[in-house]
Design a protein around this nucleic acid. Structure first.
Lengths: 219, 219
DNA sequence: TAAAGTCTGTTGAATTTTCAACAAAATAGG
DNA sequence: CCTATTTTGTTGAAAATTCAACAGACTTTA
């Protein structure tokens, strides 16, 4: 846990929390660190969402798989970010998604009940955490708006360029890496992988794009 | 305002608020009622989101329009529901959507700053409202997950049937009305209107569906 | 009630996507 | 360092979507 203190201090969930308090707070919250391997499932569709997860290292993806086995990647969660918080806050009985590790690492799981209810020690930070959570969940709403904007585009080309422009903006640079391989990007954009590859080839030939593996440059 | 008290008491935003308190609370919050006409824009893309809206009567749609004029309907907001709350909570400088009335009615606008900050009178309900907001925003996240599930389907037929099944489930009945005309439904599902119409015709001929105007029955 | 306007369903052609299959390139593991 | 596996790019054919155009049904309003 000690080695992640710096990360946690900068995590939006703990914004405004005194550095000294952080450790005792984590104890009060009943937080626990869980290591995981690549491809491991951290939260299964249908489960009850009692905890939220903070990615301490590695990365995870939020995925849905429909009746016919089509994978839909809803989002990618990087170090310092949260997952499952919306389901916990909404107190859903059955989460509609699975969380799968894309890179091995460690998660900090925090029982939501401990965040929500003022505890026996009358810790003062619950109010702050709830405020932070509200802002985080609201910000995720914005991300969903963005993603809906991508998926509502009609062609692979439009989806792809809109996605790449968003990434460039997010990274404040025309050169950036994406957290997906080709198949994952296709599942994220809701398009066919081969069509995506061929569209990338076309853009390369048109000279608007350079890419190698998951590193891209817009020209 | 008086005539909407019953509605507001059942509004998730005011869950747990004492009936007597409601009136004085609304005053303390600086809430104001605004009437609007059909097709009127209630919130414009690019604005700062300082207020959230509660639909008292009528209904509104959350829409995005891209560079080429393609309309994307993100959601439909009915009586008693909220809009703009996520942008207010996330304190965004520029909302990425517009809110347009689909039916004339009235809105209760509430400045978010008044909800968030404990007021001079030290009203006790701020904590409760924040909790309610958190749950509401988290629940909207779930709705977005659903919509992403729809949009990630590859064919018009799949999107349409998934949407109709969701509506049937939501209404707990195979007979239900939808809040969209054909063009709006197409813009909601991200498909071509004529293709949607023709798919509906096909389903009718297959005998799996009956529909007239915006009333549907699944067989 | 008539006229104007809007909404819906149909059509066929052009475009785009999906699907399946394969080979080259890259990666991982022993 | 070599082999097995995974990832990526390409292809062509089949399927589906989009687009534009139009006519009939339905609404609105004058």
């Amino acid at each position: 846990m000690q080695k992640y203190l710096e990360l946690l201090k900068n995590c939006p969930l703990f914004l405004g929390v005194n550095d000294d308090e952080l450790i005792s707070m984590l104890g009060c919250l009943g937080a626990r660190v869980v290591p995981f391997a690549k491809r491991q499932t951290l939260m299964e569709e249908g489960e009850q969402a009692k905890e939220l997860g903070v990615v301490l290292s590695g990365s995870v993806q939020i995925v849905q798989v429909d009746y016919f086995g089509n994978r839909n990647i809803l989002s990618d969660v990087e170090t310092g970010e949260l997952f499952g918080e919306a389901f916990a806050c909404a107190e859903v009985q059955s989460v509609p998604i699975s969380v799968v590790a894309s890179e091995a690492g460690e998660i900090l799981f925090i029982p939501y009940a401990r965040i929500e209810a003022p505890c026996a020690n009358a810790c003062g930070f619950h109010r702050q955490l709830i405020h932070n959570l509200l802002k985080i969940v609201a910000a995720k709403n914005l991300l969903f708006h963005q993603k809906l904007g991508l998926l509502s585009k009609r062609t692979t080309r439009e989806k792809l360029t809109a996605y790449l422009l968003l990434q460039a903006k997010k990274n404040k640079s025309n050169r950036f890496s994406i957290p997906f391989d080709r198949q994952e990007l296709a599942d994220y954009l809701g398009v066919d992988r081969s069509g995506l590859s061929s569209e990338l080839g076309k853009m390369r030939r048109e000279g608007v794009l350079r890419c190698r593996k998951n590193h891209f440059e817009l020209l």
